[in-house]
Design a protein around this nucleic acid. Structure first.
Lengths: 206, 206
DNA sequence: ATTAACTCACTAACCATTCAATTAATTGTT
DNA sequence: AACAATTAATTGAATGGTTAGTGAGTTAAT
């Protein structure tokens, strides 16, 4: 007989562990069934807890949704911060940035279906839209900073870095769309190279 | 007293009128409440009919969804066919194409939130994904044909037109995403001009 | 009289949310 | 080290509303 008698064989967790677990389950459920198809009951069943536990922690579904948006944004933020560019020459630094942005690993990180669901929701919920806008702004600032560095080093021409960053993000977001619908596995490397070349060209524009 | 006594003040329609009306109501309801949030009851209420009438015509919700996808695709197709380029010089023809693609009217035609919803759904439904792929393929062929015409006329270099078309569609789709989240109304014209310039540049690549 | 459009009443499953009960871990006291 | 008190995690049962779908009945047009 075990020291702790439990009903379902799972340990009792504290909020610090359980809350993120619920948020991640919500995300996974959205991937599988869509946003409005992700009910509290399904999110709970996925991690073998009682639906009431979710409401105990989050109060209602709206709060759970807002915490999910935060989670997705943090994941993306972590991804941006993990880009290691320090200590490289300006040329190598720019090259490395392009390599990362157009790598398979990068675009797979934030799953596209989940993004679509959240974007579709954001049209109806100003608070969510604001959060997503903040995410894109951070990305734009990050890119603009790198472009400025390359321009200062004379690798590319001086330009309106914010506008250039906006163009590049447009391409990146478009690629997330398009690649999944369109690009066969054997064409993927070719497509990524095309995108990289297009990005380079955009940096020379103005 | 009216000749036709009716309960709800609406005339009796035939299937030819009623079915598209239902599909359009479904689309509008998705815009407002998301895909899984668009129930048969809400779609019916929106046009003041009984929910059973929808099931009478479509049998079940899956069929209604498939007919919606067809409707969206037809709308997009109509949009492409409405592009009037005949009788123009090769230079003017290319210029006009760019103008249309990056016009406000064009990108507003197929509402983005509905597209997101459908794309998110397509990840979970192969039949819908196939239909959307068909739509993009038609667009790609259309663009490739125009690029070939311009190359034949010597306006742009000879190139792999299908790859170029893919790059341009990537940019267009990315712009649909990005513009809505990002571009303030006063920046919109500037952004569109940037996009047009980027498209032109992509046509010169190889 | 026939056909098609349309409504009504119903079902069983699912929805978010409520509040009270239970169970396990932690803390304080001896 | 033992025990009680407190706190937090978790479940259970019930709420009223919504869901897709069925099948039978009604109404209007031809």
């Amino acid at each position: 007989m075990p020291k702790t008698s439990r009903k379902n064989g799972r340990q009792r967790q504290n909020a610090e562990i359980r809350k993120p677990e619920i948020v991640k389950s919500f995300y996974q459920t959205i991937l599988e069934r869509g946003f409005e198809g992700a009910s509290i009951a399904k999110v709970a069943a996925r991690i073998n807890i009682h639906p009431s536990l979710i409401l105990h922690y989050f109060g209602n579904k709206e709060n759970l949704t807002l915490e999910l948006v935060d989670y997705v944004i943090e994941e993306y933020d972590r991804l941006l911060r993990s880009v290691e560019l320090e200590g490289l020459s300006p040329e190598a630094r720019l090259e490395r940035l392009l390599e990362i942005i157009w790598s398979r690993e990068y675009y797979e990180k934030i799953h596209i279906a989940g993004s679509f669901s959240l974007l579709a929701v954001s049209f109806r919920r100003p608070r969510i839209q604001e959060k997503i806008e903040g995410l894109y702004n951070a990305f734009r600032r990050f890119l603009a900073k790198e472009i400025q560095k390359a321009a200062d080093a004379g690798i590319i021409e001086q330009q309106d870095t914010v506008r250039t960053a906006a163009r590049i993000i447009t391409l990146i977001e478009g690629a997330r769309h398009f690649r999944h619908l369109f690009v066969e596995k054997n064409e993927c490397e070719q497509y990524n190279q095309d995108m990289k070349a297009a990005t380079r060209m955009m940096m020379q524009m103005q």
